[in-house]
Write a protein that binds this DNA or RNA. Structure first.
Lengths: 210, 210, 210, 210
DNA sequence: CATGAATGAGGGTTCATTCAT
DNA sequence: GATGAATGAACCCTCATTCAT
């Protein structure tokens, strides 16, 4: 039953890290929720931190894959490419909402290990996005911008809905775990690309992504 | 010397909560950094959580004050008003970068107390922003938008730079603790207001805020 | 207001020691209940233990006085004398029910200081009771008994009702803080003296004590 | 080695609770005396209070069993039955002198949990004793008495020797931990039953219990 | 592959007490 | 007489982890 035990631990840890944070969650909590013996965590992940690293890795592995998948459209134009990347990220995060929130929060902690893992992947992210921005500027699709500042804004837009889920639902009455939200919010991000990034006259015929 | 002790505890806790998170910081760490006796934390704030609540309160008290101060410009037009609010928030957060980062992270945890404090202030924030968005739509300054979605985007833009300071500096080579950054980033936010929110033809004569 | 402060501390401490025990009561609890500053306890009684010693002393001072007052009737006969002593103790304890319970419990703890204070007074108690028992045996009022065993039994009878007040009220439905109880229980003790101690034929004409 | 650890903790706690009281004993004291790690107390008994509850339970479980065992003699007559019960209690307490003293003291504290545990068992005790008293009155063995008052006296007599062990030895020079004492004191209790409770002419042929 | 017993370190908090004012 | 600030020690408890089975 090794597979089940390991999977159960991962699922429980994502849920609990998401709710209480890494430091706010004990290995006993995780083991209890996963209905396994606490010693199994050491067995499969060395220690509690190894479990976090595992979660970080599977998240970023797939996160970067989503970006790479979108980047393949670069030849179709920077705008379409960027919109595809944004769409991929948004839906990936929407489909893994708990893991996403947990990761986005944990990487704000100044931990040596977290920083190292994160850097590798986020350097890749930066690399692809920069390439897109530069391509867009080169083809005159985009206005002249500072790529890193654009990355910053784009990430701000894409992460915001997943960081504060109870703020979203209780204050804004917006529910990020509903498909409807993801669809609608994607349009907002597209509008940001069109309105802030693209140089063409405003309100162009919307560029379909699919 | 009560004032000094209390202030020292607050300063130390902001610094440590910022670096290691609330749960990752022990009261002994705080007391040690503040060079006071650990029992003083219980003396002044009842317990560790009371210290967090105190930080939350002073942050949001001033945060909402910044919004209210900007809102007073509502009669000068929604665009100017919103830009002033954005400016106020951005510089307030820039000037309290550690406290801001700590708060932005901590409020993502599902804590009862945090949620209560947060709701009070964030409801006010939503109230004022909604009024501005509605005013702008009424005066035809703004396009037709869903206010809560705009709030979401604006907050995403304004919070992003303060959430991951080492990602900012190590990956993007952008330094949010420098005045230059705040000035430049403000222009980006203004561009978002102009490009995404305002209905007038793109690239207008930039509206000065001050 | 020195008098009030001191009195308030004593009253509060008797109440709290009675309910929670000496170790289960903090000086802050006492100060809070007495509505005085905790430092006053050190001022008036040196430390927390000094407060307990003070309570012990005032209790036993008066306790022994009650015995001595009863012992003065020795010339009227051992039976009358013993009944008077029993009556005095019973009513003294009934009138100081909280203090009594607290003391009776605290003296079961193996504390050096408590032991010393206690010994002094309880040696006196033993002295007087032994004299009464011996006089009774000498005058043939009492059967031949071992005085210390009689002391033990008498004390068992006299202390029992004050030791477990909530057992008394909740299990036995007997209320030791009512005058009626003290009157009735005194008759029981008299019956013990008559039935166990006295040699005369059973059920004698009851000897009035007053 | 789970058995040994648990047993060692129980033995150490009885000894220390007996000497210093529950509140006067720290878990470190207990662990140190038992030569085990302090965390084992939480492991086996949840917390310090759970350890006390455990002691209370094992004490009263056996205490009530002693009473029930004596009650089986009810058909042989109330006097014999009551004497058997008294004998059983006395020897049970004599054989568990430290546990007994600890329990007798702790139940005088107004603790919610203690009260609940206690009530259950002491209600049973009252039930059986009342049945004996009523039977005795019915068969004219006993005089007309108030059962609860008799219970009170009997418990006073049976508990007294175990409550203040150092008073006993240092003041009265009586040693309750010696077999001789228990034998002799039992005769005193029998005399109380004969002299106070039984209606037959005084000084009957002593009823052997065994 | 999984478990329950056991550990040592550290957690937050409360304690009695001191002392300048 | 009385206070509030401050302390250091100790409190109970939980922690992540280890290890024999």
């Amino acid at each position: 039953m090794g597979k089940n035990t390991k999977e159960a631990i991962i699922a429980a840890s994502i849920s609990l890290f998401n709710t209480n944070g890494f430091h706010g969650t004990s290995v006993r909590d995780i083991a209890s929720k996963a209905k396994v013996n606490p010693a199994n965590i050491a067995y499969y992940f060395n220690n509690k931190h190894g479990l976090l690293e595992y979660c970080l890795t599977i998240f970023f592995e797939r996160y970067v894959a989503e970006i790479e998948e979108g980047y393949e459209r670069i030849e179709q134009g920077a705008t379409i490419c960027l919109k595809t990347i944004a769409r991929n990220i948004l839906f990936f995060q929407y489909e893994n909402i708990h893991l996403t929130r947990m990761i986005l929060r944990e990487i704000t902690i100044d931990s040596q290990v977290v920083r190292e893992i994160m850097s590798t992947y986020l350097m890749k992210e930066r690399f692809y996005l920069n390439r897109v921005f530069e391509r867009g500027m080169q083809t005159k699709e985009f206005r002249h911008v500072t790529p890193d500042y654009m990355t910053l804004q784009l990430k701000g837009l894409l992460n915001m809905p997943f960081l504060n889920s109870h703020y979203m639902s209780e204050v804004l009455h917006v529910h990020p775990n509903e498909r409807y939200f993801a669809e609608k919010y994607l349009k907002e991000v597209d509008r940001w690309i069109d309105g802030v990034l693209c140089r063409n006259e405003y309100e162009p015929a919307y560029l379909a992504v699919n």
